[in-house]
Amino acid sequence: MTALLETRGLSLSFGGIVAADNIDFSLHEGERLAVIGQNGAGKTTFINICTGLIKPDSGSVMFDGKVITARSPRDIVRRGMARSFQIPQLFMEHTVRQCLELSGVARQRKLSLFTNLGKANDGPGVDHILELVGLRERQHELCDSLPEGQRKLLDVAMSLMLRPRLLIMDEPTSGVSTEEKHDLMEILMEALEEQKTTSIFVEHDVDIVKRYASRVAAWISGAVAADGAPDTVLADPTIQREVLGI
């Protein structure tokens, strides 16, 4: 079985700091990978390279068997790899519903000058996602008025609307209170399960990782230091010392 996402010899440095150090990595359909690592270990850089925001110095990225190295984010999204963001990236002057509608129309590539945004959509898709992430009550409010936690949810929900084959989530639970973290993950995992979406999520909370990941990759100084089943990786003494700080 070919890997869904595969990188070979991915390297990148910014002015002497090595952000990606010869990363060989692969992910298969159906996996739920948690990425752990200290701040500055190169997790977001890895995501940025895979999704086309940054070009690597050397190495290649393949998605679904095709080379996508240094393609534009737009092109990569259209091939079925979406991402969400550590800092929510919303359309602040649009309503919650409009943001999702825009995602929906974008997925269908049906942007048109002649159909109203509200009518252009496969309605149930938007309503379903709204229901799922619990934003139905606030669907007509401007994104600007949402609290941080709900912004985070909407950000992921916009990517879910794209029905991607692979969704990469950069710290979906950061900025969310500990009690709400599990609820949020439940919601996300349910949605991913339903859409049969493979996923990668960057996470700091060990409990969350243990509970939701099928596999864990630990990043140290721009390289994958350990990769495997959650129990094995989280029990590794080096990882415990360098990454988890136990």
């Binding site: 990236q89 509608e101 997925r107 945004l117």
Partner: peptide
Amino acid sequence: SSAGEAMASIKTNEDRLEYLGV
């Protein structure tokens, strides 16, 4: 229209628009 609303979001978050494949 959907294209018009998408154009208006260039003002607030063009990067996200690209990440929706637009």
